[in-house]
Computed example of a mutant assay.
Amino acid sequence: MLTITICVGSSCYVRGSDKVAKTLERLIQQENLSAQVELTGAFCMEQCSMGVSVRVDDQVYPEVYPEDAESFFYNEVVSRLQQGVK
């Protein structure tokens, strides 16, 4: 199971973490990956001066923006699943 954690703290929230979460949730459903991907939230990931922080398992991506969420999903999440990388 691949775990995606999105920061929902105030700094990330004002940068669009809710939109990033909705996009990722939609894409997980659209690609039928619910059994392989878990989407969670975290209050703070200590990257507040950056963009929306997203962690995929143990790797943190500190600058994911709503307009980049779809490409992020395919480039970082789907590619990991296809390669079997964790």
Rank of each mutant, 00 (worst) to 15 (best):
E67W: 01
G51R: 00
C7K: 02
S53D: 05
V37T: 04
Q36M: 06
Y13E: 12
P66M: 02
E38T: 15
S79E: 15
C12Y: 09
D58C: 13
E67K: 03
T23D: 01
V60I: 14
S49M: 07
G9N: 08
L81I: 13
R26M: 10
S71D: 15
E25N: 08
V60C: 12
F73H: 13
G9L: 04
R26P: 00
T23M: 08
G84F: 07
Q82H: 05
V52W: 01
I4S: 10
S34M: 10
T5S: 13
R15I: 10
T23R: 06
G41K: 09
L24D: 01
C44M: 01
D18A: 15
G84R: 08
T40N: 11
P62D: 09
Q36W: 04
A35P: 04
Q59F: 12
A69I: 08
L33S: 02
L39Q: 01
I28H: 00
Q83Y: 05
G84V: 07
Q59K: 12
Q83V: 07
D58R: 14
Q59D: 14
Y61A: 12
N32T: 04
V60H: 09
F43D: 07
S10R: 06
S17A: 13
Q36K: 11
E63V: 12
L81N: 03
D57G: 11
D68V: 03
E25I: 02
L33R: 01
T5L: 10
F43V: 07
S71G: 10
F43T: 08
V78E: 10
G9A: 09
A21F: 07
Y13I: 11
D18E: 15
A42I: 04
T5W: 05
A35S: 15
D68Y: 06
A42R: 03
S10C: 10
C7M: 05
G84H: 06
S10N: 09
D68C: 06
E63N: 14
I28Y: 01
